[in-house]
Amino acid sequence: MIRDALVIAGKDLRLEARSKVAVSQVLPFVLAVVLLFGFALDGESQVLQRVASGLFWATVLFAAVLVVQRSAAVERADGVTDALRMTALHPGGIFLGKVVSLLAQLLVVDVTLGLAMVVLYDVALSGVLLLTTCALLGSVAVAAAGALYGPLVAGARHRDTLLPLLMLPVLAPVLLAGARGFEIALGRGVGGGWQWAGMLGIVAGVYLALGIAVWGPLLEDT
């Protein structure tokens, strides 16, 4: 299963590297969101620093919708789903491969967004280990949900509006736990930050387990 996952992840990442959509469209979108929030909140650095944690995760979710939509559309348009159906690859491995591919793209988004907030909002980095853990676990949860929902709506007529409707509510726990974990890491919240990291881990584990369990029927019957 792991070998199959690496094969699929390599294929998806090669596709993205050649198309450069993530670099040329998603990253500029992320920077635009950071700038727009700055304008919307009157550029007051104290306000921006206070809300940076929530803005970070909200932006990651919006960017994830774009990444997932793009990834699923490419597969559907080229008939890759049908080809995958006929391979002997393990369905769970295919799902994990998709998760790894989406995760790699989301981590690029995370780093770019984090740097943009440090530079533009003057956010002082602290609690780097907790920040990194939360970002990693939260991104795994987002990638797992995206890998599950992307193919599910890829063939639908109204997929562009349906995907956010499905993904964003499901990822609300990630937004909540990620934002709280970041706040505590940045010294703006109270309580134990690792509890929130633990919650992100549980959410990621649930979505990964569910994805591995249902990916086979999903690939077979949709």
Binding site: L152, L165, L166, P169, V170, L210, V214, L218, D221
Partner: peptide, 30 residues
């Protein structure tokens, strides 16, 4: 909102089997 999403998936034109699996996944996550 999750169940509104489930009902939206149910309304997509599809055969019984595809509809059952698609909406089932959304239902379990909800």
């Amino acid at each position: 909102l999750m169940y509104v999403g489930y009902l939206a998936v149910r309304s997509l034109p599809a055969g019984f089997r595809a509809r059952s699996v698609r909406s089932g996944v959304v239902n379990l996550l909800a």
